[in-house]
Nucleic acid binder design. Structure first.
Lengths: 238, 238
DNA sequence: AAATGACCAAATATGAAATTAAGTCAAAGT
DNA sequence: ACTTTGACTTAATTTCATATTTGGTCATTT
């Protein structure tokens, strides 16, 4: 068999996997995790049930991959924003972007708010890929401190805790907001950004030179994490 | 019957109600809401089951009163701190106190973290007394802005949202913290205080004169809310 | 060699019977 | 007379046996 043929075969395979994930995503948002059966997904994706098991070992693995794909799309969009404007590397801007990107996507929103109704037991697990989250929580934060994107006159553990609590608060609160005075997503993201900027960023703005350097460094780290996660995704989709 | 006699009777009645609540609280923290029966409470409080229904109409009402009592204790301790030092009226100090007081009390902690394991369906309901929470979310925040305790160069709705999200984040995150590097309660409360101060308070500190005025005004409002809630409690305990 | 769906075992849903517990009130206690 | 109680009623919950569904496999078809 020719090389092109093999590659084309792999592409078709990948396309089919994506189609199955699309079907799963649609059903997930429509009916919620616990109500979906593999038969439903197979029917919707127009493949035999056995075919799904050619791609994933278990039902849970299928949905795990779906979540990872969603996280990667968000990650990619974030990277694209970072590349288009170095100012986007400012910590509050990164957080605003993450909130804007994630919350405007139905699946991202379910992930961010830990929507138990929709995700069922999936809500507990973390899909940022273990190492990805590590990178984010650990490496990224210390990098941000070193680059002057975060205050450095603050105990790092305390700062990490405070950041996590704050961001989590903004993400989680959305579902319990039955308030009439609903703010728009833009306003909410802006509120998060302002809170983060005032509470965690240095008083005086970063000089443009440092900003560029910071952007380059952060993009590099994010690309590493992205590439790593992408490889994981590719493995999972065989 | 003499007046003293009647008052003494009422006191005994009240004491018995407290004893029942104590029993309920103990069982609640030990076994969780859904596992407790009224018989358990009656036995523990050394009263007949019927006696409990002389105080409360339903099981849920009994536990509702228990929650209200807990909120009032926290409220009272907060007021006491405010009275002892006017500086405690600074917004970040109020928030730190609330976190310190509430989180150091088992029942308060369950309430703040919305511990579903312990509180069951009670976790959903709000026990700050409808009007109390209104007062807190509405009146208190606008009063704080007027008194210079909060930045006034920020859209009030957005500021309210951001504050709620932030504080909620610090309170809720505690239960999902399986992290090894557990901070002490003091450190966590300090982290919340610092975040609040930087993100929501004016840059320059309040002059001492304004501080005293602010403390007086806030204490007055809190006393009103406290008194109102206390009356509710008294009604509920008949 | 890839894809399928009939098949099997395990999980889950169903529903009737048994148990438990919330709430009442006639009787006992003070 | 007035308070307190626990046996009683009924509604809710649990149990348990049976029926159904569904995750995952693999012999057969494409």
């Amino acid at each position: 068999m020719s090389n092109e043929k093999i590659i084309s075969e792999q592409m078709k395979r990948r396309e089919r996997a994506e189609r199955i994930l699309d079907a799963a995503a649609d059903l997930l948002l429509r009916h919620g995790y616990k109500r979906i059966t593999i038969d439903d997904v197979a029917k919707k994706a127009e493949v035999g049930k056995g075919t799904i098991y050619l791609h994933w070992k278990t039902r849970e693995a299928l949905f795990g991959t779906l979540m990872l794909r969603e996280v990667l799309v968000i990650w990619q969009e974030l990277l694209s924003r970072l590349r288009s404007d170095p100012k986007e590397v400012l910590f509050h801007r990164v957080m605003r972007s993450i909130m804007m990107i994630g919350m405007s996507r139905p699946l991202g929103r379910a992930l961010f708010t830990r929507d138990k109704e929709l995700l069922g037991k999936l809500a507990e697990k973390s899909f940022g890929v273990g190492p990805t989250q590590q990178a984010f929580k650990g490496e990224f934060l210390s990098l941000a401190r070193n680059l002057g994107l975060l205050r450095s006159n603050m105990n790092p553990e305390k700062q990490n805790y405070a950041l996590r609590a704050t961001v989590n608060g903004f993400l989680i609160i959305d579902q319990s907001l039955t308030d009439e005075q609903q703010l728009t997503l833009e306003e909410k993201a802006e509120a998060l950004a302002e809170t983060i900027r005032r509470a965690f960023e240095p008083e005086k703005p970063l000089p443009p030179a440092d900003l560029h350097e910071a952007a380059a460094a952060v993009i590099k780290l994010f690309e590493q994490v992205y590439t790593f996660s992408e490889e994981r995704l590719n493995e999972q989709m065989k």
